[in-house]
Amino acid sequence: MSKLLLNLRHVADDEIQDVTALLDQAGIAHYRTDPSPWGISWGGIWIRDNEDHPRAKALMAGYQQTRGERVRAERQAALRDGSAETFATLARRRPLFVVAVLLGMVAAAALVLLPFMLLRG
């Protein structure tokens, strides 16, 4: 029976390729399911043989550790050289978008808090 190794929700394409290449190199049989058209399932990478699942999880843990360190280093480098997107750069580049999102957040908070304010007063 197959076991899920990686849910593909919010997983970058390069990470999917890296994981499948890692599994291929290790000789672990796997397959990929695609996301559903209605967004109910996001797809996944499945291990065909239950006996390979612990080894695949160990490989995945090592890969995620390495990838996490690399991505954090890339982010720090981008922050140092000023190419990383921050709130300030987003506000300068798309001020109307930022204002609209902030107003939406205030409106949502007001709708949530309105019943409590009405009960109190």
Rank of each mutant, 00 (worst) to 15 (best):
L96D: 10
A110R: 07
R92C: 12
L96V: 08
S83W: 00
V98R: 07
A108D: 06
M105A: 07
A107D: 04
A108K: 15
V98K: 08
A107E: 07
F97T: 02
V106Q: 02
T86Q: 11
V98E: 03
V106N: 03
A100H: 06
R94P: 01
L102Y: 08
S83R: 00
F87R: 14
M105R: 02
V101I: 05
A108C: 13
L113C: 09
L90S: 08
L96H: 03
A100L: 10
G82F: 00
D81N: 11
V101N: 01
T89R: 14
G104E: 06
V99F: 10
A91D: 10
V112D: 12
L111C: 08
T86E: 03
R92W: 13
G104A: 10
L96A: 08
F87M: 13
M105E: 02
A91H: 13
A108Y: 11
L111N: 14
L102Q: 11
F87L: 15
A109F: 12
M105K: 02
L114Y: 04
S83P: 02
V112H: 08
L113A: 09
S83Q: 01
A109T: 10
F97V: 05
A84Y: 05
E85C: 04
L103V: 12
V99H: 10
V101F: 01
A109E: 10
L114C: 02
A91R: 15
R92G: 08
F87P: 12
M105P: 02
T86F: 05
A108Q: 14
L111D: 02
A88W: 12
A107N: 09
V112R: 14
L102M: 13
A84V: 06
A100C: 11
L90D: 05
L114Q: 01
V101T: 07
E85A: 02
E85W: 01
A109Q: 13
V98W: 04
A88S: 15
E85M: 01
A84L: 05
A84E: 03
A107H: 09
L114K: 01
L103D: 05
A109S: 11
A88P: 14
T89M: 07
G82Q: 04
S83T: 01
R93A: 04
R92K: 15
T86M: 11
G82I: 01
V99W: 03
R93H: 05
T89S: 15
L113V: 13
L103G: 08
L90K: 06
L102P: 09
P95A: 12
M105I: 04
G104N: 07
A88E: 15
F97G: 00
V112S: 12
A91L: 14
T86I: 12
G82V: 02
L102D: 07
A109I: 13
L114A: 03
F97P: 02
D81W: 04
V101W: 00
D81G: 15
